[in-house]
Amino acid sequence: MKGMNQATDLVSTGSTEKRAERKLTDRYQALLFLAPAVLVIVSVFLYPVVKLVQYSLQVQDYGQWKWVGLANYRGLLNDDIFRQAAKNNAILLLCVPILVILSIFFAILLYEKIRGWQAYRSIVFLPYLLAIPVVGIVFSYIFQYNGILNEILRSVGLGRLALDWLADSKLALPTVMVVIIWKELGFGVILFLSRLLSVPEELYEAAKLDGASWWQTHWNITIPQLRGIIQFYSIVAVITMISWVFNYVYVMTKGGPGTSTMVSELYIYQQGFRFNLMGTASAVGVILLIVTSIVIFLQFKVRGGLDSDTE
């Protein structure tokens, strides 16, 4: 996230007395102006998080909450479904390097402004505008055993590759990953491209004069220029894979076949609302919150060391 810096001074003129007076009204006004936002944030974020931690240490017994200490967390360690969910989230992280590399690659191709680059740019961004449930439904038809993909494969003589993409427990997760990459790639390309467009052109001209190859030019100029954005985009993608994939899985596989595409968000949903085990679900919520915070914290730490080139 971009750090906001420097408060803007409203007034720089006027007597000290007047300034002090205005400072006081500023404070009262700020209180009034911020009140609605703070009220909503407290009720949607802060109060729920406090409650979440509390629930995670309790179990519901005939409608009564009972204190059980860390039992919910210990239970998770022995729960195969939870372990599968955590493992699947870890596998989904493989999408991050793929997304980063593909985005940079396409951003560079577009940056070189070959004929029609603006049309290509709009096309690559299109998937990002679609709703995940819409994408999920369309792809679940494409990947049906008798769906269009397999029909194409059979018609070009690749019938052996016509597999049951979403119903095979080995294939389902990789198939979901393909859909996630298809949908999320456009954002990365646009992000990298807009950064590239602001790189001073002299840098590239100098490289050209030095006789640098395509590969050398981009390795030595483009990648270093993109470093801050690569880091930002990677963090966003990591957080997406850990905690924003519910929609894909809910629409395409509901975690199945078996538990082969179970992820932690779906686990929370099922434990909490299907099996009514709100304590267990909350414990997973706490873990998810901690993992996300660690990722953000690391981002700030790394950023501190790189501050000069991350703007």
Binding site: M1, K2, G3, M4, A37, I41, S43, V44, F45, Y47, P48, V49, K51, L52, Y55, I239, I242, S243, W244, F246, E265, I268, Y269, G272, F273, M278, A281, S282, G285, L288, L289, T292, I296
Partner: peptide, 22 residues
């Protein structure tokens, strides 16, 4: 302000259970 901006990355699924009871 930084605190509010940081909330952007909090996964909604985390708040769902307390919000439901609330």
């Amino acid at each position: 302000l930084n605190f509010i901006i940081a909330l952007m990355v909090v996964p909604p699924v985390v708040m769902v259970i307390p919000l439901f009871n609330f």
